[in-house]
Design a protein around this nucleic acid. Sequence first.
DNA 1: TAATTTATGTCACTGCATGACAGATGACAA
DNA 2: TTGTCATCTGTCATGCAGTGACATAAATTA
Lengths: 210, 210
Amino acid sequence: MGLRERKKVQTRNALIDAALELFLTQGYDATTIDQIAARVDVSPRTFFRYFSSKEEVALSPPADSQEIFLAEFAARPESESPYTALSQAMRAMIGTLRDKEPAEAERFMRARQLVEETPHLLAGQMRLLMDNEKRLVAEVARRQGTDTGDLLPQFVVSIFTGLGMVCYTSGPQGFDIMAKRLDDVLKLADRSLRPGWDLAAAAVSSPATG
Amino acid sequence: MGLRERKKVQTRNALIDAALELFLTQGYDATTIDQIAARVDVSPRTFFRYFSSKEEVALSPPADSQEIFLAEFAARPESESPYTALSQAMRAMIGTLRDKEPAEAERFMRARQLVEETPHLLAGQMRLLMDNEKRLVAEVARRQGTDTGDLLPQFVVSIFTGLGMVCYTSGPQGFDIMAKRLDDVLKLADRSLRPGWDLAAAAVSSPATG
DNA sequence: TAATTTATGTCACTGCATGACAGATGACAA
DNA sequence: TTGTCATCTGTCATGCAGTGACATAAATTA
């Protein structure tokens, strides 16, 4: 990796860290791009060459973690039912984040705290989630052998997204507490959902449409 | 109702209609506040006296419909379980919207279409949803006799919100198709969820934490 | 009609975001 | 090392969103 590329990574991380620091201390709205840029000694224009908006710099860690989740999900064995694969992918994601180098893991936690206390960012994160939802639905449909347009895969993904929100919205905390919370929610889900609810068979047994 | 008050309602509706018209034809981003204001013959500054942001004018109908939903939910009889009450409130909301005068019903449908095809607005609507979620969780907890901090009421609300999203994200359509879609999703939920899953008893029967 | 309240318009200003252009800096070959 | 090329950065100019201050116009009330 050349010097140029290393510098870019460095600047990018510096911008994220500076932004998170200012957002968390002064608040998101009260912080200007100029302040963030000044702290990293770059021009405001340069900031926008790394991030397309003020929102994006704050949501950059969450976006990364979602990518990780999607990768983990795609890597789950075919033997797992859609919902099981989703749950396991979520656990795997938390583990992957925890095992990163401290500086990076710290960024994820700080961003998480910021997003939670800033409604605008929470909305933005939901948008990220919905952007990925299509990919998720497609993969679930594939595992079920159903069509992407079917109600069932969308249903499964929506239920799961709901669970994710519950364990996400629960105050500042570390990865371990987050994992514990996820376990609790998944246990609750196991008690609430019928076995095989996420498999196509249940839907197929219904009479033809119309 | 005095002349002044009537004029305000009139201007407000005119602004919403002009905004929706421009947003739907030119796109949300390509439309400026100046254009909207010009179409209603008011100054741009006046626009911001009616709506605090460009986003708010577009989300005004969805915000209203959510208020209707909350009112319907609060009015459901105590005999209904939390989830049943939520489902019935949703059906009631669609009915209430359909029965409004055509001009107003039209606004809801147009806004719905706009929100669906504009990611930024979809995110904004999710924020509205989450703003109301606290109220919803509190009411569900009250019906269950559980604490607002408990996992169960949050779980129930999240599951339901997920269902709502499924039936919301499904292409441009009228109230009837929307109601049909809701029915399908609720049927699917009935097949997937264990009886009594939304009642406190199920959680209480689990062994003590730890 | 006169006095009061309230809505609206104008003006000025800050912040976010983008395009264009020039200069600085790293990459690479001779 | 040097020269060339690609790329990153800073400066400048611009448009749009959103807000505060103040004056004006209109509706309300007496």
